[in-house]
């Protein structure tokens, strides 16, 4: 998946109007709450990426999410 495509999908998963950049701090996204974390976990699962709930607490920026999905984003 291309980076731009992934960012748009992420926006959809988090259910926010805000345009996301890798540098966007997660705390700036109003909709990034406990429900968004559930949606993200489901998204990770669909991508075949194993993640524990605790890892989300350490994420600070959109780039942390991109890094965690690894090979899914290819450019």
């Amino acid at each position: 998946m291309k980076l731009q495509e992934f960012l748009e999908e992420l926006q959809d998963v988090i259910d926010t109007e805000m345009e996301l950049e890798p540098s966007t701090p997660l705390e700036d996204i109003e909709e990034y709450d406990s429900i968004a974390v559930l949606s993200l976990m489901s998204f990770f699962d669909e991508l075949g990426v194993d993640i524990s709930a605790g890892e989300f607490e350490k994420f600070e920026r959109v780039s942390d999410i991109i890094e965690r999905v690894g090979d899914v984003v290819d450019g």
């Binding site: 406990s34 974390v37 559930l38 976990m41 489901s42 699962d45 993640i51 524990s52 709930a53 605790g54 989300f56």
Partner: peptide, 12 residues
């Protein structure tokens, strides 16, 4: 309840 962990377990 750790809702996120329970959710993660459920979908798996």
């Amino acid at each position: 309840m750790n809702g996120a962990e329970i959710f993660n377990f459920t979908i798996k």
